[in-house]
Design a protein around this nucleic acid. Structure first.
Length: 265
DNA sequence: ATGCCTAACACCGTTAGA
C-alpha cells in the first residue's frame, strides 16, 4: 500500500510546522509540494529529513517552486517539463521510486506539478498556461507508453467542471475555468489518465483551495484545483482518495489543503 | 464595480497569487 499526496504549501519555509504536523498525521509515502517559494538551498531539509523523508526540490527565488518527498529513496529524472528550453519557471519535478511490493515489478513514477495560473485571460500569462498544458499533454503521452504506475500530482490551476467551483458565474472569466483550459485538462484525461479524487467522489463541490479573502474558508466557498492523475496501471490499484481539510483549519494556513490517494502497490 | 488576504522582497510599497 502506498499513499501519495499533493500539497500547495504557499511558501515552504513559513509552513514547516503545518507540513510536519500533516506528515505526522497522514504519513504519506510520497508528498508532492508546490509553491515552495524559495531557492533549493533554502529548503528546510533537516526538518523534512527529520520526519523520515528523502527530499528533492526545484526552487527559485520567491516564487513558484516544487518539491518531492518520499520515504523510500527516489531518483530524480526531470527537473523541468520538456518542450521549451526557454521556460525557466520552477514548476516540475519527476522521479522514480522502486516499490518492493509493486505488481510485475513496475516502478512508481511521480511528478510534482505547479501548472501556471494564467490570469488574467487575454494576456501572455494565459497563453503561457495553455502552452504549458500542451507540453504536459505531450509529455504525458510519452510517459504513458512506459506502462508504469504513474501519478502526476499537483496544483493544476484547473477547475475541471462547474461542480468544482463554489460560484461558476463569479469565476466565468477566470483562467482556471476557461473552455480552453478545461479542454486541455480533458485532453490529458482522454489520454488515459484518471482523476483519482473525481473517480471516487463524482458528487462535486469538494474543494482543495479557498481564497484567503472574503471568508471563503468559513463559508466553504472554494475550488477543486489540486489533482492526482493516474495512469491505467495506477488507477487499477486505486483504493481511496480524500482531501485533508485539517491543515486549512490551522493558524496561518496555506490557502490550499492536501489531497491524497492510496494505491494497492 | 472593487477589494477583501497573504507572502516575499525590498523598502515601508509593490507584485503575485487564484
Amino acid at each position: 500500500m502506498v499513499t501519495i499526496a499533493t500539497f500547495n504549501v504557499n511558501s515552504l519555509r513559513i509552513r514547516v510546522p503545518h507540513l510536519q504536523a500533516w506528515l505526522k498525521a497522514r504519513d504519506p509515502d510520497v508528498a508532492l509540494l508546490q509553491e515552495i517559494k524559495c531557492l533549493d538551498e533554502e529548503v528546510p531539509r533537516l526538518e523534512i529529513q527529520g520526519m523520515g523523508y528523502h527530499v528533492s526540490a526545484v526552487g527559485m527565488k520567491a516564487r513558484h517552486g516544487v518539491a518531492l518527498l518520499s520515504k523510500l529513496p527516489h531518483k530524480v529524472e526531470l527537473t523541468a517539463l520538456p518542450g521549451d528550453p526557454a521556460d525557466s519557471e520552477a514548476r516540475y519535478i519527476e522521479a522514480v521510486i522502486d516499490l518492493p511490493d509493486a505488481p510485475h515489478g513496475r516502478p512508481l513514477r511521480v511528478a510534482s506539478i505547479y501548472l501556471p495560473n494564467g490570469n488574467p485571460i487575454g494576456t501572455e500569462k494565459f497563453t503561457y498556461k495553455l502552452g504549458w498544458m500542451d507540453r504536459l499533454i505531450a509529455h504525458a503521452r510519452e510517459l504513458l507508453k512506459r506502462e508504469e504506475i504513474l501519478v502526476l500530482g499537483g496544483d493544476y490551476n484547473v477547475c475541471p467542471n462547474d461542480a468544482d467551483v463554489f460560484d461558476p458565474a463569479a469565476m466565468a472569466g477566470d483562467a482556471l475555468c476557461q473552455p480552453e483550459t478545461r479542454q486541455r485538462y480533458r485532453a490529458l484525461t482522454n489520454l488515459g489518465l484518471v482523476d483519482a479524487f473525481h473517480a471516487l467522489h463524482p458528487e462535486g463541490h469538494r474543494y482543495t483551495f479557498w481564497d484567503y479573502q472574503a471568508g471563503r474558508w468559513m463559508r466553504d466557498e472554494g475550488l477543486r484545483i489540486d489533482h492526482l492523475l493516474l495512469s491505467p496501471q495506477a488507477a487499477d490499484l486505486l483504493e481511496a482518495s480524500e482531501i485533508d481539510r485539517e491543515p486549512r483549519k490551522q493558524e496561518k494556513p496555506s490557502d490550499h489543503t492536501p489531497i491524497w490517494c492510496r494505491l494497492a502497490a
